[in-house]
Design a protein around this nucleic acid. Sequence first.
DNA 1: ACCTGAACACCGTTCAAGT
DNA 2: ACCTGAACACCGTTCAAGT
Lengths: 227, 227
Amino acid sequence: MTVTPPARSPRRRVPRNTLNPDRILDAAVALLDRHGPEAFTMRALAQELGVGTMAVYSHFKGKDEIIDAVNERLLGEIELPSGTGPPRGQLIELCVGVYRLFSEHPSALQLLTSRPLRGDEPIAVIDRMLCLLITAGLDPSAAARAQVALMQYTVGAALWVVRRNRAECEEAEAGLREKIRSRLAALPPDSYPSLVGLAPELVAAQQSGQAQYEAGLSALLDGLIRN
Amino acid sequence: MTVTPPARSPRRRVPRNTLNPDRILDAAVALLDRHGPEAFTMRALAQELGVGTMAVYSHFKGKDEIIDAVNERLLGEIELPSGTGPPRGQLIELCVGVYRLFSEHPSALQLLTSRPLRGDEPIAVIDRMLCLLITAGLDPSAAARAQVALMQYTVGAALWVVRRNRAECEEAEAGLREKIRSRLAALPPDSYPSLVGLAPELVAAQQSGQAQYEAGLSALLDGLIRN
DNA sequence: ACCTGAACACCGTTCAAGT
DNA sequence: ACCTGAACACCGTTCAAGT
């Protein structure tokens, strides 16, 4: 006699206990944040997933496609500000969100520098920024220029911090700060009087991270919004 | 009879017609600017020099050491402003110099993001910036923060431009601009009203490069110098 | 359809050897 | 001292093959 096969959901795209794009991206982000972009290898990714190297290629065309997908996922994590209060405060909130994303996920930044950005995840952030700048009284062309400037500064600041963290990892723990200080002190004060004189303040500024970013952001917004 | 050997300069470090560190760095910079960082290969470099792959290793420890040397050479090319006129104008001149270096030598920027900066070439630039900021009336700690912010913004802006140029190269010639415009037009105006409404201005801002940089720099300086 | 292992064309670098 | 060629341990990806 014929047995009716067990009722089955018409589309069972994700067989249990096996690979899928989401699991791959989870592993990719974890790998990137843990060991940095240069350790992000197809072979390492597959090992992280407990799978043969080529299994990943069933879900992504290649490494570049994974990089794009990781970028899109991370940029999608940025949360938009609540939408109340004066535009200046909301702009700061939004920009700090972007800054924190990039400095907490150095991978995203490295990926951003190594490949042009595809996908449309960041558009929500851009749209909100523009809206806030218009609300703050800027005309369309000034708002567009301001939005680009804000993104440029944010990316640059994050890049700075990531580089510093990277340098700290490479050096013996915490010896870096002293090393920089001594190198600054060893410079001929006659040739570089300002730099030698301001060495402590410079080290402090380099060290402050998000506070430094917010100070610069505040100044930039002052200049952009005018008053 | 004994012939006195021909008088010889006591140190003849650079035998003619052969490799030396300078020739290697020339070739490295040329290779980087011509084909980008991912084509910068020890094998390609040796071929550019018409020499076996391992010859380079007689002059540099490895690829990283060459990267550091290239960075130092490029940063040393930045010219300091003449030293006359109000500090604001000199600061702009100096920052634009850094910006142009990075956007004309994408290699330098990529290298900057891939390795912490070693060597002391950029110190002259930093010293001059600090000096100008103090002259403009900032106190030491504000000057230090301002200097870092200026560098962060400059690096970020250059990174932006380099990424855009890279994207343009990858696409079929000049089709990119139209593509972006059409993708912006295809977005749902209800979801992203500001972005869709300001699309032409945004494209213009992205396209303007150094003018966009100078506009943002001017705003940032306004905010930093206060008045 | 999904996953595997072997293989290919690269890469930076080590090493023994030449001059 | 400077340069060479072969070799090693990697890398991304292709391909034929398994289920």
